[in-house]
Design a protein around this nucleic acid. Structure first.
Lengths: 345, 345
DNA sequence: CAACGCTAGTAAATCGTATTACCAACCGCC
DNA sequence: GGCGGTTGGTAATACGATTTACTAGCGTTG
């Protein structure tokens, strides 16, 4: 803390007034070449870096966008984050991320930190319900976009992907291949996403007379759970097995594929076709490359950032809160990715 | 921006002075129950949230730690980040992360942002060389810890893992199993880590008279590259093949395992034992669970945070910079994880 | 030459909080 | 009843930048 150097130190060093140094940064053309050069040297010599707190306090404008993401660990988050970062960077702003470890308390803590910092905007993929909080922030002039979930309030901007459509794509694909005994492998339905995917699957099955959907429940959505589930299925008599499996995520599907391939009794996709969901990086690298449903992570991130900047502009533009306007919600259609686990090599 | 509410608004609402409201937050015991209650209500009613910029400006103390990580996408980063976050949170501070997309420019940008924000400390796993920058920051009172790399300057605290030892562990394990024709699968040596791992492997081989190390070069460190490499090896005559493979990372090893298992000609580990490096989440979930070398990510993160807090205390404690003290470097010993890919089921 | 408009620069106010120094009132106590 | 101590509170200042309003000097111009 010894070496604080302020704009005043620079001014003194360069033999000018403090405001002139400020002008040097913001309206450099107002200065004569001589003083500009003197100040440049002073800044260099002293290693001056402006104090953001002071700047913010005065201007009320922050160059940072906050991003609160549940489970940075989650396989899909980095892709979204990178897309957002790219967009934010293009706007000459900065993206600061907070790792939401799943605790609702910590989630709020970070939301509050960002509020205290008066960031320009917040993108959040929350675990808890934060819409009320976000509404409050908006009234305070902080824009926000909810990610990965459709906002309940019409005033809350949000982006998400349409899991119902996604799972329809998957199951239609299986049906199109002539499969009729579909197994849906999923865990607890309390996750909205899982419920949505099941709904989509069902809606397809119901429209096909001779098709059936068997719901196979697993305790977790991990590779291990997939392996365990596959071993279970392998013990059934062949006539009793599904001829296609729709797994609620890629991890499960990968476990199943590995187990079947190793067991050598069930061929993929001849005996059983397998399709997953998410298109994680590993999906194309499994021993039988995995068909899956891809949600456009990068596009989602970019869209979230776009919406955010729109709202920021809006909040700054007219006379503040122009009543409860209706905020956009953008829903992305997932995309079917066909690989060998459904159509052979 | 319409609804700014400051400490003064609260004061007015509660019919007290501005300083009393400040006291309410920092020395609540100084207030009578009555006023405390009035202020509480005022804060509630107005939804007051203190302005961090003003607070910082006044106190010069920030509650945030900055973390600049190269490739949040990297499989190992989240684990480190989570460990750091836990430690930071225990200190009642906040961790804000910046995603370094690999551009040295952006890396510096974020470093500068953190400097402008006068954060309390910075942990950085950089792509470029930033020690000079960090030294400057330290002179300004901002602590820092370099992660995943040993600092060159003795004044720079850092943490890393010992890749030489790690690969020694791996190769010694293979030797201990009676293998002698070891293949080392790696990509370009320009990455320090890769070079270190090769060095470690070599040092073991040289000490065992009849052991040989064949260096097998691959273009990338991905699952696909592993599969391609495995196909190559499968075409060799059995006598010509290594009897053990040490892969420079788990992805390569996973590709190789998948390919061998699918090809059914080469048994793991009977014909060829395979060991990887990193212990990524998938390592235990492959069809033949992968032996590997685990670097203690969580411990690394915790240690980094510990060092940082030490330095913060030091910077704040005595009369500022007490000359160039020697900063600690902590090196973690990796740990051998033995699974079926080397010792059978 | 008076009036005007530029140019290059400065002084001072301001942002919202924490803190220091100060004060009034009350209490107890010899 | 005077004195020290506590309790509960306030006024004023400082933090480091931005910004507004102002000015001195100077060339132009009708």
């Amino acid at each position: 803390m010894l070496n604080k150097v302020t704009i005043r130190d620079v001014a003194e060093f360069a033999q000018v007034s403090q405001s002139t140094v400020s002008n040097y940064f913001h309206k450099p053309r107002k200065l004569s070449d001589a003083t500009r050069e003197r100040i440049r040297q002073a800044v260099d010599a002293l290693g001056f870096v402006p104090n953001d707190a002071a700047r913010m306090l005065r201007t009320g404008v922050s160059p940072v966008i906050g991003y609160v993401a549940f489970e940075l660990a989650s396989a899909t988050t980095p892709e979204v984050a990178t897309a957002i970062e790219r967009r934010v960077s293009a706007e000459d702003m900065y993206l600061l991320m907070a790792n939401d470890t799943g605790s609702r308390q910590r989630e709020r803590d970070y939301l509050q930190l960002f509020e205290q910092q008066r960031v320009s905007g917040i993108i959040i993929a929350p675990v808890g319900d934060v819409e009320a909080e976000l509404a409050r922030l908006r009234r305070r002039g902080i824009a926000s976009v909810l990610s990965a979930r459709r906002a309940v309030s019409p005033a809350q901007a949000s982006v998400s992907t349409d899991h119902v459509t996604g799972s329809r794509l998957a199951v239609e694909h299986l049906i199109g291949l002539g499969r009729r005994k579909i197994g849906f492998i999923a865990s607890s339905l309390d996750l909205r996403q899982v419920a949505d995917r099941q709904r989509g699957a069902l809606s397809v099955i119901e429209a096909v007379p001779d098709a059936t959907l068997e719901i196979i429940s697993v305790p977790e959505r991990t590779v291990e759970a997939g392996i365990a589930c596959a071993e279970h299925l392998a013990r059934r008599s062949p006539a009793d097995r599904p001829d296609a499996l729709f797994c609620v995520n890629d991890l499960l599907a990968i476990g199943i594929i590995q187990s079947f391939v190793a067991g050598r009794r069930i061929r993929i996709p001849e005996d059983i076709a397998v399709i997953g969901y998410d298109d994680i990086e590993f999906a194309q690298s499994t021993i039988v490359p995995l068909s899956t449903v891809r949600t456009p992570h990068a596009e989602l991130g970019t869209a979230a950032a776009d919406l955010l900047f729109d709202e920021i502009a809006e909040l700054r533009g007219p006379e503040g809160a122009d009543g409860e306007r209706t905020a956009p919600h953008i829903e992305f259609a997932p995309e079917l990715v066909v690989r060998a686990s459904t159509v052979g090599a």
